[in-house]
Nucleic acid binder design. Structure first.
Lengths: 183, 183
DNA sequence: ACTCCATACCTAGATGTCGAGGTATCTTGG
DNA sequence: CCAAGATACCTCGACATCTAGGTATGGAGT
């Protein structure tokens, strides 16, 4: 998730680590803050993997900055990760949101639509939490008010997102030439 | 998060590991599946910490079952973790949902309300993602449709939850005797 | 000169999780 | 009688993350 955020931000423009740190914090920091000790090793991993290049420049305000630029391999990797996200990026809201934040980096509307459809399929598919066997649950089926809330919130958010996904897929449809990507 | 789920389920009744595995899967499995290699070591950790006791019984269907029972220390620990959740349990939706699923185990409405208030404070406090300095953002402020969606969904879910939190806090209020827990 | 602070990057140890295996028990069907 | 499959628990190595530190630079205030 962090790696995708790093790559996603760098796809737009070269940034130094500290600026990257602030961008990541602005995107997901209020939900789950990222420690320095997580970010900088992640940058090194991506550098070792050849996905980004580092140029040391004198710091404008203080210590020298390491400006990070995506390599061609890095740009390809961003697109690959967005095009074929692991299942947990579809199901886990935190990861899904990160993917969504950078989905515009996929240049084909067909590919973007394919990813949205995966999320839509996941959300519309019966999940154990919302079903008792074949029977759909209702908030009143829970005796405890907190589980009722859990259920109410989860249902409402799910509905909102499904609506948005359907709308967005409809607006993407005319942009897709010829045959769609996947059945 | 996993530990809280384990302790939370065992608070109601003794369960063997395999059944626990299914309960956890039903609660959060569709979002983020838990591997066996994560669950069983977690059980061992909690056992070593003296929070639960293990009784081996002949399996009703197959291999012998290890029935897990919370110790008094374990019951106290559940309440402690629910009463004083780490900040990430308030901010991260996945963790918050697990906390909420077991919040009824706090026996005092005042304590329950205090936790709900922490979540409400977090949700109503200006987060970098929703604000540009002092100015609240709108979906139209984002040029890219996917970020617009991100924003729309996040705003809608946040509003739904805030409404529920306010309602539930109001319904808890008359149950709270004398002075509230914390300022 | 001096200290303080924000900037900017880093390391080391501990820990939780995952993936990919493995083992043992009991039931069911051929 | 034997194989297959579900049940039930486990280990091990790899890896990402967190905590808790550390180091160095430059500017602002005293």
């Amino acid at each position: 998730m962090l790696e995708l955020a790093i790559l996603g931000f760098l796809f737009d423009e070269a940034l130094h680590g500290y600026e990257l740190r602030n961008r990541v914090a602005a995107l997901t920091g209020h939900v789950r803050p990222i420690a320095d000790g997580t970010l900088y090793p992640a940058i090194k991993r991506l550098e070792r993997a050849g996905l980004l290049r580092r140029d040391v420049r004198p710091g404008s305000a203080a210590a020298p900055r390491h400006v990070l630029t995506l390599t061609p391999a890095g740009r390809a990797e961003v697109r690959r990760r967005l095009r074929e996200p692991d299942e947990v990026f579809i199901t886990d809201e935190n990861r899904w949101f990160t993917a969504l934040a950078f989905l515009r980096h996929l240049d084909s509307p067909a590919e973007q639509a394919a990813v949205l459809r995966r999320r839509l399929t996941f959300l519309t598919q019966p999940a154990s939490f919302f079903w008792d066997g074949d029977r759909p649950l209702r908030a009143a089926d829970f005796d405890d008010p907190f589980r009722q809330g859990l259920f109410t919130i989860a249902t409402a958010t799910s509905r909102t997102e499904i609506r948005w996904l359907r709308q967005t897929l409809a607006s993407l449809a005319p942009l897709i030439e010829s045959a769609p990507v996947a059945p």
